[in-house]
């Protein structure tokens, strides 16, 4: 089989992988060697090779989350050489390819580190805190049926585009993992902005931002560090501007809303 780069040489690598039995036990870094890694492999395919080797040798494979392997489901979440999703900007771990590494490299692979994301096993973490934040208000309260014709709500193209940009968040958690405060502001603000920008979302904009921020705090995420590492490391380019929008929405809500909570 020939890939895009038939002359690229296979690589041998040293992996330093976080192993942890479950959330109640301590973990540690374990070293592994992988050989004959094609530069055309994705990072997760390289881990597949490791896991197949481990299983054949009677050892336990490394648990890690993944699914679509096209950069959209948000399942994959590896901290590679100290960076969320590894060295390539704007890329999820599953879309990171081994051609970004060199023969003989040592690669350190860890799970997201955040008190709000407890480790399930090895590299898999529990991100259900994100679901609970959405449940606190990340929606427009309408039921199925009885909605007006779609074109009865004209929306300026630039507003629709900005809402779309915010809505492309994949909830992987790289923002949290990259922030020294483990802040989830970028994730939360992406949803707040999307719905605050759109006319459909205006009715509930005040209660929404208050409830979502309250839940975010309750989950144990930290405050915004104002450094911007979240946006710098976000694989889908969610803009820091969303945090500004959320802060404005929040202040406005707190000053004027009827929400007594």
């Amino acid at each position: 089989m020939a890939g895009s780069n038939p002359n690229a040489k296979p690589m041998n690598l040293t992996l330093k992988v976080w192993r942890q039995r479950n959330r109640n036990t301590a973990g540690s870094i374990v070293d592994y060697q992988v050989k004959d890694i094609s530069p055309d492999m994705s990072f997760l395919e390289m881990l597949d090779v490791l896991n197949e080797d481990l299983l054949r040798q009677g050892e336990e494979p490394v648990a890690f989350d993944h699914d679509c392997r096209e950069g959209i489901c948000g399942s994959c979440n590896l901290f590679i050489n100290g960076r969320a999703h590894g060295p390539e900007a704007g890329t999820t771990t599953c879309q990171l390819h081994m051609r970004k590494f060199s023969d003989g490299d040592t690669i350190t692979i860890e799970p997201w580190r955040s008190a709000a994301f407890p480790v399930n096993k090895d590299l898999s973490v529990d991100r259900s805190a994100f679901d609970r934040i959405i449940q606190a208000g990340g929606y427009i309260s309408i039921n199925t049926g009885g909605t007006p014709d779609a074109n009865e709500i004209p929306i300026p193209k630039d507003i629709a585009d900005r809402a779309f940009e915010a809505a492309t968040c994949i909830a992987c958690g790289a923002c949290v993992a990259s922030c020294k405060n483990s802040s989830a502001m970028l994730f939360v603000s992406a949803k707040v902005s999307q719905l605050a920008l759109l006319p459909q979302g205006h009715v509930e904009r005040k209660t929404r931002v208050e409830n979502m921020v309250a839940q975010m705090d309750k989950e144990g995420f930290g405050a915004c560090s104002n450094i911007g590492s979240c946006a710098a490391e976000c694989p889908v380019g969610i803009s820091l501007e969303n945090i500004a929008i959320m802060n404005r929405e929040y202040i406005n809500a707190k000053a004027t809303s009827n929400n007594l909570a």
Binding site: I142, A150, K157, A160, A163, F164, L198, Q200
Partner: peptide, 22 residues
């Protein structure tokens, strides 16, 4: 046709023309 109405009401940001329609 109902699906599109439903999704727009939920805040699904479909592509739009400059006049603001879908």
């Amino acid at each position: 046709v109902n699906i599109i109405d439903q999704c727009v009401a939920q805040g699904v940001p479909f592509a739009r023309e400059y006049g603001g329609l879908l």
